[in-house]
Design a protein around this nucleic acid. Sequence first.
RNA 1: GGGCCCGUAGUCGAAUGGUUAAGACGUCCGCCUCACACGCGGGAGAUUCGCGGUUCGAUCCCGCGCGGGCCCACCA
Length: 773
Amino acid sequence: MLQQRYDRSIEEKWQKLWEEQGAHHFDDKDTVRPLYTIDTPPPFTSGDLHMGHVLSYSFIDFVARYKRMQGFNVFYPQGWDTQGFPTEVKVEKKYGRLKPVEFRQKCVEWTHEMISRMKLQMEQMGFSPDWRHQYRTMDPEYHGKVQLSLIRMYGDKLIYRDRYPVYWCPKCVSAIAKAELDDEEKTGTLYHVKFSGPDGEDLIIATTRPELMPACVAVLFNPEDERYTHLEGKMVKTALGKEVLIFADKEVDKEFGSGLVMVCTFGDKMDVVWMHRYKLPLYEAIDQYGRMKNAGALDGLKVEEAKKKALELMGDKVIKSTPLKQTIKVHDRCKTPVELIPSQQWFADIRTTGKHIKAMAEKIRWVPDFGISYLIDWVEGAEWDWVISRQRIFGTPLPFYICECGATAAASEDELPFYPEKAKGKKCSCGKEMKAETSTCDCWVDSSITPLVIAGWPDEKKMERFYPASLRPQGVEIVRTWAFYTIYRSGVALTGIPPFQTILLNGNVLAPDGKKMSKSLGNIISPADLLKDYPTDSIRQWAALSGAMAKDRPFSYEDIKYAKSFLSKIWNAARFVENCGKPKSNECELNMIDRWILGRLNSTITDCTAHMEAFEYHYAMSKMQTFFWHDFCDNYIEYVKHRIYGEGPTREAALYTLNTVLQEFLKILAPIAPHISEEVYAGLFGGSVHKESWPEPGALYEDDVKKVIVLNDIVSQIRQHKSRNKLPQNAELEKVRLSLPEDLDARLINELKEISKVKNVEIVKGEFSVTAE
RNA sequence: GGGCCCGUAGUCGAAUGGUUAAGACGUCCGCCUCACACGCGGGAGAUUCGCGGUUCGAUCCCGCGCGGGCCCACCA
């Protein structure tokens, strides 16, 4: 017997049982069923699942459960993206500064704790990965694979070491990541400085950083700026007398200042772009303590002092200064303005491989199809190679050696996983002992080989079976990173085969007000809070209703409330069917109304199958809701009550139909609402609904469907009449006169009498109308 | 500034080159009808953002404009 109400205790019961039974285990030995592999996104191990996770992992779970019912052997692993700056911050806050090895150990401990918290939350959502197949990017085994991939790419000359500007905090004397930057609005000063042109004419340059004058390596103007086009390719003199080239670049703003820009290597990010674009000489002017160098008289001065001194030195060449609102980047913790300073970093070549990445992306099925445009734009706009090194501690060590002479070498494969403190060492060709690199990898280096890692790379036999993955589900906002880097590394660089066949893009969950959820706005909705009021299956339905398109959607309490009432509806309908009992045999004579609902069931199955195949959960869910709630509950169940309460063969047919519709419906509902469907299925029909095959639609009974739709209209009119006359719906009517354009099947007239409690029905030919007395 | 997405009752959202433009939430009226009041039945509520164009006919296709969102870049 089903209990009175559906609640979370039922869901918890099944979650526990599934876990105990290993219900979602991948069957490694089964080579008969076709394989379906999912390259699940490894969430960053923050410890908390947010609504974005719930949305995207729900989609993944719908796919997995659907494919299992479709007869696939589904390989659904779960990874964890563990290494990152936020963890370092938290661990440092808790333990203070520690030696690297110890610090890393604490980060690992911390992360394990976060993983167990997140795993619990994922289980509460009813997600069904095979928990025996987990990977963590911080595991030595994972490190080894990342490092092997880098060694191979280094061997193919796709990875190299070069000078590169990094954001640097002079106060903390440390490189900092982009994520650690804050923007600060500030009113600075724009200085207008006289340079001299090739013929000695005055050229006015506007700059906020006069102290970088010694580092000026070029002057640029817009190619459409007729004031300057005659200067193209000539030499000009800076205010401090240095000779530099002047030429055109389309990104110069004609309207700003005088339309001339001085390029100093490392003045700001745009300077770096220009430096790369035109291979301008690199000129270092600021050291790691924020003091000037290679700047003549300014040497040794701090930036602010140097600015004063420089202005002094240029004297009357500074013709005016105007206030300027600017946004400067500061280190988030100490609020010190950051500098870009050059340092040795590791790069992966994405410029010469860009066209291959694009070509490979085109071989993948993108859902929705416009998703690929994010990747193409990115490839086409790439300014310079991917900087893969970070000066962090909790990260995968780069498996390389460097020599004082500037030479580099890869670690050998037999010393993987490679850790600098345990490195075997290497002799350089110059004779000196090389040092192990201590930098770590950008986290995208770790996550861009997930399809390889789940496929058992580099084991060729496993790769043959598991690579490429069938599906890569991910957020649309990380096409430029995760999808791009994965296609590049796993695909172009390491295997030559696209890493997945289909990529499914989901959008983000916004707050109900349409804004981004954020702590500062206080509009965050957490899955844990929702679980207090809503069963898991209603949260999953909300996800389904939010659509699979790469589209952001506000969180909707309306949807989730509706989903919750739908669960009650299913539950109560199931209790009704349970009370009615089962037919004595499946051989029974169906009437038109039975065939109508069976036909509707079958077309719903057909539609839902197509929608599930196309990842259109929104459509699948609404079709199910309309069919079950309105056709089955509001109409069919009401129509057959008189038969159920009576006796005879017509009762048998109704029982057969009620049970069949419910049973088949539970199957199509199962991927989205796995708990309620399991409970009802087990209780009424026995066995697990998740082990059933996805239903094949039977006959559509189109003729009967058409005829019964007329009946529906008539019933509705009679309900209206009762409603208008303030009668209860079960009130008896003496007589109803129907005016119909076509004859009504005699069998339906009798049904109508029972359904609407009408004693006499009179039919006349004419336009559709219903009059009751 | 570049790319992409979007604009439909109070709100969220389907659909369609052709009768009356789904559905949900909210609202209003009625009904405790033996699965469900967490429910049932019914009603009201839309110039389909604006302006042009293509067409016999546009909410849909095209152009422009206005408004919103996402990603990226920039602020010398």
